[in-house]
Design a protein around this nucleic acid. Structure first.
Lengths: 165, 165
DNA sequence: ATGGTAATTGAAAACGATTGTCAATTCTCG
DNA sequence: CGAGAATTGACAATCGTTTTCAATTACCAT
């Protein structure tokens, strides 16, 4: 089987300064365990995808994952990447951030809660934590007698670089 | 607490109960003025689109607008609807809400900003305003050099009535 | 290890939402 | 009114994503 590259993303602004993930030394069996826990079979493709997600930039598109993985595993197809990312998103193993009509971006679900600040122009995502906001959310909910379960907070704006055109 | 846009299931997930837009006596020249203010020409199509937006449901898709408008103006094309909605969104005359991969929904930008507190059990929606949160959002954006354009804040929880049962 | 079997894969085509193209029409302003 | 530019409708093209399907592969029981 050969690998075909779909259409190249057109005029998307590429390569923002995006923070890298750096994780602890990875237990080699960790990914296998993750996959089995999802009730799925362990394949080289899935391992490679997890590898890529844990080593690369924090918020990546499916295309980017595909390109990265494809570089070292030339046989992998992008459908596999999409399928696996979706499965993981369903199980909350990865978090999916969709902004406007731009391609969805994925990250391994962080153990520590944060929200996102997204550039509407280039799609760059900055993570932030703001405990005061969290507290106010609790307060608002309580004021209305609600027991808060979760929330969605996404800020959108224009990043410094795009402001400079 | 997750900041994730809820993953979309396949197929059309019908959206929860929608509030209708309150109808005020509409100054007949109002829409024409709005259009001219945008630096655009006044056409029957654009008037019909605005008419539809101000009279119907609060959050509608471009498709829905097209169907509504098309019923009374059979010659209108959906490209015109998309184009005009986009133009208005650019100028913030309408607010565009995109959830997951679902079609974008539009509403005439409410003059008064509010966010939503939604019961995950019964779907009841409570609107709230919380200026301190707004201010903190501004601050977060500024701290990162972003020029804030808009935000999505949705709180989810269990309403008092559903807690009781 | 081996073979049966269901899950998974890659390629390609399908898909739905949105955007572009372009000739024909319509608005605006002089 | 009439010229010029903006706008329109029909339709094709794009984009990200999903599905389809035959071929392959992982996994379990033997």
């Amino acid at each position: 089987m050969e690998t075909t590259v779909p259409h190249l993303a057109k005029g998307r602004t590429p390569l923002e300064p995006e923070k890298l993930i750096r994780r602890e030394p990875v237990d080699p069996g960790k990914f296998k365990r993750m996959i089995r826990q999802m009730g799925l079979k362990v394949t080289q493709q899935r391992l490679a995808i997890l590898e890529s997600l844990s080593a690369g930039r924090a918020h990546v598109t499916a295309q980017e994952v595909f390109e990265t993985v494809n570089a070292s595993h030339p046989e992998i197809g992008f459908a596999t990447v999409y399928r696996f990312l979706r499965k993981m998103a369903e199980q909350n193993l990865v978090t999916e951030v969709r902004m406007g009509g731009l391609p969805a971006r994925y990250e391994l679900t962080p153990r520590r809660h944060h929200d996102h600040l997204t550039c509407v122009s280039c799609g760059q995502i900055v993570e932030f934590e703001c405990p005061p906001i969290e507290n106010l959310q609790e307060k608002v909910a309580n004021d209305h007698g609600f027991q808060l379960t979760h929330h969605v907070l996404e800020l959108y704006g224009i990043c410094p670089r795009c402001q400079a055109e």
